[in-house]
Design a binder for these strands. Structure first.
Lengths: 226, 226
DNA sequence: ACTTTTGTGTTGCGATTGCGACATAATATT
DNA sequence: AATATTATGTCGCAATCGCAACACAAAAGT
């Protein structure tokens, strides 16, 4: 995880962000201006506020990670999903307006974010820039991925036992990281929250699974032994 | 729930679909042609296939409902969400290409669906129709709602006890239907599946809750007594 | 009208889980 | 370097839940 110490990230790095795939450096400059974009850095635990009264922004995680939390009326909190580098958040501007979804975004670690005005991003500007087609397509692709993330979480938490939830989660990580050695992108406590299970019950089950020869782990590194 | 017996639904009814909000009847005609749209009717339990090899279509539920299911590699099935009149499904065309999400759509009852080519829907056609701005905006709003639906499910299933899950679910229904008398849009068996709990355990808890004076119910009608 | 399938409701039992309490390790903060 | 905070690991106990099995009602298909 590389944290950029400069105020502004290099253009070349921005070009590798999925949202800008197929966009040239020239177009990117126009685009960033068009969408009133700016960058910000957050430390672990910082709340990331999206609403700027008049303009609604979407955030793109450049480095680090952002946790998406939902609070219910009783004050309970659910970790909906976490957003990694290259991914979008806050793109559901419809939500914020129509109903109070009580979704909040919190930096999971030191995190660099690029903000852009959502409206300008998806609508052609007066100059009818050529890249809007590409951009809209990319935007939809990212939305699809976000949706997949939520569905993954549902699939995982739908398992009835803690053991099955852990296995489903590790299996997902294994696919993502293309290895049977996987590194947790979150703390074990956060994992328990993500799986919607009691933390100590999860710890107990983890050691049971190790004793049963299903998995092995040390700190945040896990090995899946089938 | 009105099921249209005709082959084609009236234009005036289509205009009331959220995706077409702000679109004139004239524009709608262009649009439907542009997007190679067609209608289909399904009976309860019918699988709805979206992939048409070359063009990927999105579906709009005109009447009835569609259940969105996810199958894992072990053959387990999860009811991700259900899609009601005016709502979209299959819009994540990015998903089907990039990774096999194993999502399938099944009619929950007699259901009328309008299909449209997704690409043409979000991209301006050669004639640069004026309504594309509006359409893209509507599309995003609907995607946001879909996302909210998934988050709702996560919030509900994240509760630790069956009782809390039921209460969270009924509270959501109550908000939707703007009444403390609510009608289940799905069967009780499907509800258990949606809540990711054992059906008989859910039944037991329902009667417990009735005995404790929390709720009352008859068939598919529930009353919330706080 | 009859049969088959699907949905509803109930119960006992054993397994799993949440909870609370505690100790220690690791990380931040000053 | 000292202190505070957060994360990790373990355990006993009581509550909850999944499971299996059954009976009956409702709906769908013939």
């Amino acid at each position: 995880m590389i944290v950029n110490k400069q105020d502004k990230i290099k253009k070349s790095e921005l070009l590798s962000v999925p949202l800008f795939s197929g966009i040239t450096e020239n177009e990117l400059n126009q685009l960033l201006y068009c969408c009133r974009s700016y960058e910000a850095e957050y430390k672990k635990g910082d709340f990331i506020i999206l609403d700027d009264d008049k303009v609604t922004y979407v955030g793109i995680v450049l480095s680090g990670s952002v946790n998406m939390l939902k609070n219910d009326i009783y004050g309970n909190q659910t970790l909906l999903t976490y957003i990694g580098p290259g991914e979008l958040f806050g793109e559901n501007f419809a939500i914020q307006k129509e109903q109070n979804a009580n979704v909040s975004f919190v930096a999971g670690q030191t995190t660099h974010v690029l903000f852009m005005a959502a409206f300008n991003l998806i609508h052609s500007c007066s100059r009818n820039c050529t890249f809007h087609q590409t951009l809209v397509q990319n935007f939809f692709d990212l939305l699809g991925k976000k949706s997949v993330r939520l569905m993954e979480k549902i699939e995982i938490t739908s398992k009835t036992t803690i053991r099955d939830k852990i296995l489903a989660y590790l299996s997902m990580l294994s696919q993502e990281q293309k290895s049977r050695y996987v590194t947790l992108p979150i703390t074990k406590s956060e994992l328990a929250e993500y799986l919607s299970v009691n933390r100590s019950a999860m710890m107990r089950e983890l050691t049971n699974m190790r004793n049963d020869g299903l998995i092995d782990f040390d700190k945040n590194t896990f090995r899946i032994l089938i």
